[in-house]
Structure formats: structure tokens, C-alpha cells
Design a protein around this nucleic acid. Structure first.
Length: 883
RNA sequence: GGAGGAUUAGCUCAGCGGGAGAGCGCCUGCCUUACAAGCAGGAUGUCACAAGUUCAAUCCUUGUAUCCUCCA
């Protein structure tokens, strides 16, 4: 056989794109026939507003690892990719573009505006798709979906109409969160609260009969034009007498009553609050309880409307506030103003201050949906990783409020409701409506609003598989297996998917919910455009490769913890990939002139058994880690097996036979090494996909593509405990002797004789003899003698201590006797301290009677070890003195 | 106001009821022909603080402090 050559340097650019195209063209990403069952994942669809950031990179890296892992176990596996139309966000992008051209969306009209938005969608979609491909995501592009696809749109209508038929959708005039900039209502979850400085104004409201005045405190005096009452707590002794009296609303000629309502906080301000039902959620509720009118004082753009005195009309709220305050002060109504910080709601998309706004909106009645979703958790149909999110989920479900689903936008799914302009009939329909079923008029018009974006994404796990049709995909891949998402969209998305799935398909949409942390910078700040602290995944790929990025993220993604990174973090993965590359390169070089032979356990040396054992333990560790979504543990198992076991010890030990062995031995060894290399590529493939495929296909013993090769399974028959102990002992002897060389500053080229005296039960005695050549070469020993009978004269040698053995290094020069004795004395001190702790435990009756027998045995072993240590150190000091 | 998380090496973070770990960084010595993106060796910690439970606490319980999220 000829040697196989690899480029000298690992350069991911040479093959990552080629390999991805190869997989894609071969159709490796799609589900294959295989074992029973299925494994399916739907990708959280990125918004078509932008490009992918590190959060996406983390999320999709983890999904890719899970998906590849399961695909290799042989079950039919599907990963559905796609994108989200992201209503407000995308519309904002287009409106910003228009603004630069001096246009508003109304100037274009709905149709032209949407045409333009589709172009933006196409552009971003293409970028996102290419990014996912660069990352190496093994999602099935044949199954790609977009939330406004024809099929998904049908799903949206089906969901809406079904809920309507079940009495779970209603329309009504309600106080909603309204973003004046976006010009639309928002759901409660789309409002972000931020503590801001503000002022608390104390305002006098005179009694209508002129008998004095009361004082109310408010942060928003301009809303007084919408006041319909002043409320006090019913048990508030101060005000019991005045309930029912009328007040004159300053700056107006309206009269409003004093009412009693128990929601009033007696401690706040004067204990009297103005009630403005149309502009405050609490007041809205209070108004409903007390049958009060709601006076809307705002236009949709946030300016004051005709319900206010003329002077203030069409002023933005903030300006109106200043004017109102000024006028109140002028007229003597303003008693005082004080600094007051409070939480103010902002639009989660454009960060404009939210106005509570009274308008006609569509809502979903959530109680019954939430109850089913809670039941799913209770029955463990869904499991969160990490578990603590289950509380958050439950709490949200328990305190859920109705969901406002209509948006006054153009980009999105039109609400499937039509109104007859002649007879006023309202028609809710799965099909487009052209004529009124009641009066047959063709003068019908569809509701102009669109649905909240999340009303399509909450159907994602089944709409992407063909629902509402009963498709083969749906039967085969639903419910999906695992959902991977960051915690910031648990409410927006995850919770709602569970509700919709339970409602429409009577099943949870997935079993395992993996909540990842957020990616942050080294200072722990979220990455954002405004801070300029973001890292572009493509830049990482460009510099270090996609494998390095995925592996590093995996290594750092511990159990939903936030991941703090900078550009240099990815060196870790890059170095590991380089290590894999070079190890392979070396081994493939050694194929020159060799024949691969079939491998039988009977031909294994101790080192062989050890490495197979370590391999199997790694496979087991990875399996366990993957089962519980402990990605960092899996990555660590991969890393330490390949680097610390396979490269550092196994390949090193193999060099002897590969370079100096007989032909048979060389054949035997290279065959085993190739077997391990081939298995390692399979083991590592989910975590470092490109490099393992590139290497795998070059291996003389590979079969097909590693992406669909069988994942190594833990094999208890290939665990060799005795051999593991022996190799551990060998490693310990090497460390001890190397330490001597290092601490005595002996040049590497200087060879010396080493005598090793094994103690009772030392595990590596035989192994050290059989691996004499390997051991000598790594130690730089001119001669390595295992002296079981203590027959070699070591009086002139430098002594060193190991666990279960003594080593004697024959170096006479360069020894700082006093220094070495001092070191030994320090060691004795340490050992004695340990010994003391040990003895105190062993002489403690409570310990002896309560502790587990293993713990006692261990203490006894430690005691023996420390005693032995002290004894040997003393001997060595004597030896040194005699040199 | 409620809930959750974090506090371990210089940095980023794992871990765990019985002798403190990784990666990076740092120090020393090596281009030992797979890899200097490497190899060998090394230093660094009152495991936030205080009580409690336990034979035994970095780990469990409670409280305190600081920081961060989410919800109201």
C-alpha cells in the first residue's frame, strides 16, 4: 500500500465548501430508511430581516450536533430549516428604506409595498441560507419552509378559523399596547419595560360644588382629558365621606365622580388616583368594574385627538404634557412636582414608548389552551433542559392573559375575516370570500389587519410537515424530538407552540426542550449592533473554519449557561482540528509499504487494549452527555480522548513499532491504528463535521461517507480494566522521571540510565518491560531497567518517588543537593499533613461507624500511601546526602 | 414586589458529600522529522461571606453581600 499524503497544514478552506456541496448533492441530509422510529428537529426560523449572528451560530451548531449524532445511530432523521417573515421587524426594514427615499408606505400602497418587502425577504433569505450552509448545518433543504409559504398560510387560516369555531377567538374594543411609531398593536409579551426617570405631579381637582379640592398624583398629566373618575380605597378612612361627590376636571368643564375601588394603593401619593380607562391598563379594569366610560384622547400616531380641548389637539403626548403642566401651574392647580422613576413600556422592535390604546383588536382566549399546555408538562410529555425553566413556563401559563393577535401592518397573514359592506355581516372563512353568504352582495372587504407573526410560527412544528393535511411527513416525523432554542423566546414561541400543538393535534410538538444561553462578549454584554461588540460567524469561519466554530461553541455551551466569547476563543477549536489533521497526516504517511490485516482481539498488546478501552469509555461518556444535552461534556470527552489519549500516548507508543518493528508488527500496528482512526472520525463527526468527512474519505478502510456511517456504540467487551490500570501506572512512571529531568534541568539530548523499583502490586511492571523501547525513548533513557529484586546498585543515583514505585536516575552532575533535599522535606511536610488528616479520620469512631466502607477503605489506602511517601522521601534524603 | 441564575486559578468557565479541574494566559526548557496551531515540565485558589445539618461541606439547608436576567 502507498502512503496517503495530506497537505502539511490544516486549511479548512480547502475542503469545507466542497464537502458541503458533496453532501448536499448526494442527498445525505434527507431522512433515510433505517431503524424503527424517527428523530426530527425543526429549526427555529431566523427572521428574514437580517443576517445570522452568534446566537444563531450557537443554536444551529447544537442542533447540527444532535441531528448528526442521531442520523448516525441509524434512525430516519429530519432537520427542517426555514425562515420567519417577522412582521413588524421586516416591515420596519422596508419602511426605513422608504424613508431614505422620502416615502411612506402609504405612498406606495399595499400591493407595491408588499412587492418590495418580498424582495427584501428574498435577499435576506439567500444570505441566511448561505450562512447556514457555511456553518455546515445538515438540515434538509428539500424540506425548507417559510412562514408565508402557501402551505403555511393555509395552516394559519385553518388555525384561526378552528379557534374561532371553538369560541377561542374574539374581536373587541380593548386597551392594547400600541406602538405609535410602528402604528400597530402589540401583544403583552412584545412590550419591554425599562426603568426611567420621570416626574410625579400633584394636581388639585376642585369639588364641583366649590367646597374645596382634593389632590391626585400622576406621572402623565396630559391623560387627564381622558379622566372619568377619581378612585380611593373603600377602606380608606380619610376619604370615606367624599365618595360619590363630584369633581370638576381642571382645564375642562367636565364633572367626574369620586368612586371607591380596592385596587387603589393607599400608600401611593395621596391615596387618590385619577381613572383614565382608555390609557392605563389598571384604570381600564377599574373602569370596567365600575361601568365607566372610556374616553380615548389619542390619535393613532400618538397625538391628542378631538376629545381634548382644542388648544392641545394634534400635539404629541410629550409636548401636550408640558403645556398641560404649564397651564395647571398658571391656574394654580399644580401643587408640586417631584422626581419619580418608574417602569415604562417600550416597543420590542423599535423601542418607542408604548401607549395603552383603546381599539378594535382580535384576541385568542388563552385559558383553556394554557391548561392543556400545563397538563403536557405535568405528564412529562415535555421536558426542559435544564429543568429550572419548567417553573418559568408554568408561571407564565398560570398567569396567562388573552393574546392580542391583530396587527395594523401590511406584511403578514391577512386576518381571514370578511365584512359585508351592505348588510354588515362578518364572515370568518378558510377560503377567500367574494360574496356575502347572507345578502349575496359582492361588496365584501377583508379585514385590513394582519396576524401577529407568532400566530404562524406557533404552528411551525407541524405546519412545516404539511398540516392541516395528513401528510406522510406528518405521520412520520411528528411529534418532533427535540427543540433547541434560547431562553428569550420561551414565551413568544416555545410556550405557544406547545399550546397550539395540544389544541390542534392533541400532542406535544416535541419532547425535549433544550434551552441554550445567550452568546455574550467577554464583558458579559449581549452582542448588539449599537455596541459594536458583535462577532460575525462568517468571520470566525473565515479565520478558523466552521468546525472550529462549532466545536468551540459546543465545548463552551454548558447547560443553558450564557456563553461569553471573543474572537480568540475559537483558537481552541482550531487547534484541536489542526491536531486531528496532523495526527492523521502522520499515520497516513506510515501506510507506505504496508498491508492492512484484519483485527482480532487476540493480537492486542496492553497498549492496544488500553486505547480501545479508552475509546469505549469516550463513546459511553458522549452517549450519556448527548442523552442529557450536556454538550460541553460531550465535547470534552471527544477532546481528551483524541488528544490526550490517542495522540499523546497511543500514537507516541506506536512510533516504535511503526519505525522499527518487523514487517508483521508494522502491518499489525498500522491496521489497529487505522481502525482507531476510522472509529475516531465517526466518534467526532457530529462535533467536527467537515474535517472528519475529509479525512474519513481518505482512509484506506473507510466505507462510504462518515455523515451516514454508524455511530460508535459503547462495547463492554472492549473494556480492559487491568490494562487501563497498567497504562496509568506507566504514565505515572514517565511523569516522575520526566520531572526529574526537568527539575534538574538536564538537557534533552543527554541520556541517562533509569532504574525502576516497583513496589508491591505495582500495575505496570510487565508493561514497562514490554514497552521498554517506547519508554526509554520518551524518557531519553540510555537504559531502562525494571529492578524487581532490588539487585541493582542505586547508591549513586538520583532517587524519585512515585505512587507504588521508586525511580533512580543515574545523573551525577547538575544536582543541587541542598535544593533537592529542601524539596523532599517540603514533600514530607505535605505528606505528613495529609497523613494527619487521614489518621484523625481513621481514629474517629463516628467516621468508622458511619462512613461508607468504600470511604474507609480509601482512607486506609491513603494512609498507607502517605506513610510510604514519607518513608521514601527520608530514604532519598539520605541517598542524596551520601552522593 | 415575585421568581430564577451567577459568585471556584490572571481571564472564560466546568465540576462535586470523602485527597480542588479544563481551555486560554503566564513561567522554564525543547524545532525529539505529524503538528511551535506542537512537546515536556511548572506556578497560581481562605471554591463570595456567615451560621446550620453531617463522622465528613466547595458541594446540602438557611441567611447576608454583590452582579445578571425574567415576570409584575
Amino acid at each position: 500500500m502507498k502512503a496517503i499524503e495530506l497537505e502539511k497544514a490544516y486549511n479548512p478552506k480547502d475542503f469545507e465548501e466542497r464537502i458541503y456541496s458533496y453532501w448536499k448533492e448526494k442527498g445525505e441530509f434527507g431522512p433515510k430508511e433505517g431503524k424503527e422510529g424517527h428523530f426530527s428537529v425543526v429549526m427555529p426560523p431566523p427572521n428574514v430581516t437580517g443576517i445570522l449572528h452568534m446566537g444563531h451560530a450557537l443554536n444551529n451548531s447544537l442542533q447540527d450536533i444532535i441531528v448528526r449524532y442521531h442520523r448516525m445511530t441509524g434512525v430516519p432523521t429530519l432537520w427542517v430549516p426555514g425562515t420567519d417573515h417577522a412582521g413588524i421587524a421586516t416591515q420596519n426594514v422596508v419602511e426605513r428604506q422608504l424613508k431614505k427615499e422620502g416615502l411612506r408606505r402609504q405612498d406606495l400602497g399595499r400591493e407595491k409595498f408588499l412587492e418590495r418587502t418580498w424582495l427584501v425577504k428574498e435577499k435576506h433569505h439567500d444570505i441566511i441560507k448561505s450562512q447556514l450552509e457555511k456553518m455546515g448545518c445538515s438540515c434538509d433543504w428539500e424540506h425548507e419552509r417559510f412562514t408565508m409559504d402557501e402551505g403555511l398560510s393555509r395552516a394559519v387560516r385553518e388555525a384561526f378559523v378552528t379557534l374561532y369555531e371553538r369560541g377561542l377567538i374574539y374581536k373587541g374594543k380593548y386597551l392594547v399596547n400600541y406602538c405609535p411609531k410602528c402604528g400597530t398593536a402589540l401583544s403583552d409579551d412584545e412590550v419591554e419595560y425599562e426603568n426611567m426617570p420621570g416626574k410625579l405631579y400633584h394636581v388639585r381637582y376642585p369639588y364641583a360644588d366649590g367646597s374645596g379640592y382634593i389632590t391626585v398624583a400622576t406621572t402623565r398629566p396630559e391623560t387627564m382629558f381622558g379622566d372619568v373618575a377619581v378612585a380611593v380605597h373603600p377602606d380608606d378612612e380619610r376619604y370615606k365621606a367624599v365618595v360619590g361627590k363630584l369633581l370638576l376636571l381642571p382645564l375642562t368643564d367636565r364633572k367626574i365622580p369620586i368612586i371607591a375601588d380596592s385596587f387603589v394603593d393607599r400608600e401611593f401619593g395621596t391615596g387618590m388616583v385619577k381613572i383614565t380607562p382608555a390609557h392605563d391598563p389598571n384604570d381600564w379594569e377599574c373602569g370596567r368594574r365600575n361601568n365607566l366610560e372610556a374616553i380615548n384622547i389619542l390619535n393613532p400616531d400618538g397625538t391628542l385627538n378631538d376629545n381634548c380641548p382644542e388648544k392641545y389637539r394634534n400635539l404629541p403626548a410629550v409636548e401636550a404634557r408640558e403645556l398641560v403642566v404649564e397651564d395647571l401651574r398658571k391656574d394654580g392647580y399644580l401643587i408640586k412636582e417631584e422626581e419619580h422613576s418608574h417602569d415604562v413600556g417600550h416597543c420590542y422592535r423599535c423601542h418607542t414608548v408604548i401607549e395603552p390604546y383603546l381599539s378594535d383588536q382580535w384576541f385568542v382566549r388563552m385559558r383553556s389552551l394554557a391548561d392543556k399546555a400545563l397538563e403536557a408538562l405535568r405528564k412529562s410529555d415535555i421536558v426542559f433542559y435544564p429543568k429550572r425553566w419548567e417553573n418559568t413556563y408554568s408561571h407564565w401559563m398560570e398567569t396567562i392573559r388573552d393574546w392580542c393577535i391583530s396587527r395594523q401592518l401590511w406584511w403578514g397573514h391577512r386576518i381571514p375575516v370578511w365584512y359585508c359592506k351592505d348588510c354588515g355581516e362578518q364572515i370568518v372563512s378558510r377560503e377567500d370570500v367574494c360574496s356575502c353568504p347572507k345578502c349575496k352582495s359582492t361588496n365584501v372587504e377583508q379585514d385590513s389587519d394582519v396576524l401577529d407573526t407568532w400566530f404562524s410560527s406557533w404552528l411551525w412544528p407541524f405546519s412545516t410537515l404539511g398540516w392541516p393535511d395528513s401528510t406522510e411527513d406528518l405521520a412520520r416525523f411528528f411529534p418532533t424530538s427535540t427543540l433547541v432554542s434560547a431562553y428569550d423566546i420561551i414565551f413568544f414561541w416555545i410556550s405557544r407552540m406547545i399550546m397550539s400543538s395540544e389544541e390542534f393535534l392533541d400532542k406535544a410538538p416535541f419532547r425535549d426542550i433544550v434551552i441554550t444561553g445567550l452568546v455574550r462578549d467577554r464583558q458579559g454584554r449581549t452582542m448588539s449592533k449599537s455596541l459594536g461588540n458583535g462577532i460575525d460567524p462568517l468571520e470566525i469561519i473565515d479565520r478558523y473554519g466552521a468546525d472550529a466554530m462549532k466545536f468551540t461553541l459546543c465545548y463552551m455551551a454548558a447547560q443553558g449557561q450564557d456563553v461569553l466569547i471573543d474572537m480568540d476563543s475559537f483558537k481552541m477549536g482550531s487547534r484541536f482540528a489542526n491536531k486531528i489533521w496532523n495526527a492523521t497526516r502522520f499515520l497516513l504517511m506510515n501506510l507506505e509499504g504496508r498491508n492492512l490485516v484484519s483485527i482480532e482481539p487476540s493480537m492486542f498488546t496492553t497498549m492496544d487494549k488500553w486505547i480501545y478501552s479508552r475509546f469505549n469509555e469516550a463513546a459511553l461518556a458522549i452517549e450519556k452527555a448527548m442523552e442529557s444535552y450536556r454538550f460541553n461534556d460531550a465535547a470534552q470527552a471527544v477532546y481528551s480522548f483524541f488528544w490526550n489519549d490517542f495522540c499523546d500516548w497511543y500514537i507516541e507508543s506506536s512510533k516504535q513499532s511503526l519505525l522499527h518493528g518487523s514487517d508483521d508488527e508494522k502491518d499489525r500496528r498500522i491496521s489497529i491504528v487505522m481502525d482507531l482512526l476510522e472509529k475516531s472520525m465517526r466518534l467526532m463527526h457530529p462535533f467536527l463535521s467537515f474535517i472528519t468527512e475529509e479525512i474519513y474519505q481518505k482512509l484506506p478502510n473507510h466505507k462510504g461517507d462518515v455523515i451516514v456511517a454508524e455511530y460508535p456504540k459503547y462495547d463492554p467487551a472492549m473494556i480492559f480494566e487491568a490494562e487501563e490500570k497498567a497504562v496509568e501506572a506507566l504514565q505515572e512512571t514517565m511523569r516522575v522521571v520526566r520531572n526529574v529531568r526537568s527539575s534538574l534541568s538536564i538537557a534533552p539530548e543527554k541520556k541517562f540510565k533509569v532504574v525502576l523499583r516497583p513496589g508491591e502490586g505495582f500495575a505496570a511492571t510487565k508493561l514497562l518491560e514490554s514497552e521498554n523501547a517506547f519508554v526509554s525513548s520518551l524518557l531519553g533513557a540510555s537504559e531502562f531497567i525494571v529492578d524487581e529484586t532490588k539487585s541493582v546498585d542505586v547508591d549513586s543515583a538520583f532517587p524519585a518517588n512515585g505512587n507504588g514505585f521508586e525511580a533512580f536516575v543515574f545523573v551525577r552532575d547538575a544536582i543541587d543537593v541542598d535544593g533537592e533535599i529542601a524539596k523532599l522535606e517540603a514533600e514530607i511536610k505535605k505528606a505528613e499533613k495529609n497523613l494527619e488528616a487521614c489518621l484523625s479520620k481513621l481514629s474517629n469512631e463516628n467516621f468508622m461507624s458511619h462512613a461508607k466502607s468504600e470511604a474507609i477503605a480509601k482512607e486506609q489506602a491513603k494512609k498507607a500511601e502517605f506513610e510510604e511517601n514519607v518513608r521514601k522521601c527520608r530514604e532519598h534524603i539520605d541517598l542524596l546526602r551520601s552522593i
